[in-house]
């Protein structure tokens, strides 16, 4: 196992991680970016991104991430594949372990993002890949001319529902409340789509049928009337929000009640020399542009911290 020594190590390669990589590379800090399993982050699972400033006609999520990656590499960021298995923040330098490498680093920028939440039903877990999905762009293809359900009421749920109408014969949106959290523009689009209907005040209590090895329906419960019914669908797309990826830091970095990393004075975490950016510390905005912005902040904060512990030689200034 090789040991690498770094001034700046970044975990995560979404907009936050790659922007942190770009800024620290331009500051000549030769940062190491560890991609993680979901290289490129959540935008790799999207189609057109229409709200990233500078792209007047929109850009595909994966293309935007490829461009961010190329830009960080152009200035010398070293980007490696691999998944971090352990982080030790109790001594300095910090120690990071991946499957193949051991990394000693003076500063750490955490940009591990967030992962789609599941409903938590055993039947849902059993049918992953066989009709249960959290990625419409990956799996929509399998439901050509078939009825499906999308669970959730936020922007991502509606975006998935609208995207899936390209393939599915019908999309039923199942939502726990009687109003949507999604933005007005997404609501208008979904309401106007003839292939989308809504099940309000409703939750999924079971995905059918694990004994068949594939989805053929969902059991729904109306939360107001307690009435149950079975909806025949071939696919279930779960879009009920995200959980921050903080397992590596449990007991080492302070989090809020929802598990998001707490930051103060910009991107500083509860351990000096460790900075956080992107969705792992943000459950409010969760946009590509805010993630990129916070990645820039983390890189600048890390650079200033390094200067404070290793002041540059003061040749030009009088002592």
């Amino acid at each position: 196992m090789a040991t690498l020594t770094k001034a700046v190590t970044i975990i995560g390669s979404g907009p936050a991680g790659l922007t942190a990589g770009l800024y620290s590379a331009r500051a000549n800090l030769n940062p190491l970016v560890i991609e993680g399993l979901e290289a490129g982050g959540q935008l790799m699972l999207t189609t057109a991104v229409d709200n990233f400033p500078g792209f007047a006609d929109g850009i595909m999520g994966p293309d935007l991430m490829a461009a961010m990656r190329a830009q960080a590499e152009r200035f010398g960021a070293e980007i490696i594949r691999g998944n971090v298995t352990a982080v030790d923040l109790s001594s300095r330098p910090f120690v990071i372990t991946t499957g193949d490498d051991r990394i000693e680093t003076q500063t750490l920028i955490v940009a591990t993002g967030a992962t789609a939440k599941l409903l938590g039903l055993p039947s849902e877990r059993a049918l992953m890949g066989h009709g249960v999905s959290t990625c419409a762009t990956c799996d929509g293809f399998f439901f050509r001319d078939k009825p499906i359900a999308v669970i959730g009421g936020g922007d991502s749920a509606l975006e998935e529902a609208i995207f899936l109408t390209r393939f599915a014969s019908h999309v039923t949106l199942v939502h726990r409340r009687d109003t949507l959290r999604a933005s007005k523009i997404m609501q208008d689009k979904a309401m106007a789509n003839p292939k989308i209907t809504f099940e309000w005040d409703t939750e999924v209590v079971e995905v059918l049928d694990p004994s068949r090895g594939a989805v053929n329906g969902v059991v729904l419960r109306n939360l107001k009337t307690e009435a149950r019914k079975t909806l025949a669908v071939d696919g279930v797309f779960v879009a009920i929000g995200h959980t921050p990826n903080t397992g590596l830091f449990s007991g080492q970095l302070e989090t809020d009640a929802g598990g998001y990393l707490l930051t103060h004075d910009g991107s500083r975490t509860s351990v000096e020399g460790v900075f956080a950016c992107g969705d792992v510390q943000d459950h409010v905005y969760r946009q590509a542009i805010t993630a990129a912005g916070s990645g820039c902040m983390a890189a600048l904060d890390a650079e200033r911290y390094l200067e404070s512990i290793h002041p540059p030689p003061t040749t030009s200034s009088p002592s």
Partner: peptide
Amino acid sequence: MVRGIPTVMLFKGGEVVDQIVGVA
């Protein structure tokens, strides 16, 4: 009945003996 990818299945003696769904 693959309806999601990536799905990786391990076959032994003509039967599916294990599978991993999603990136691991």
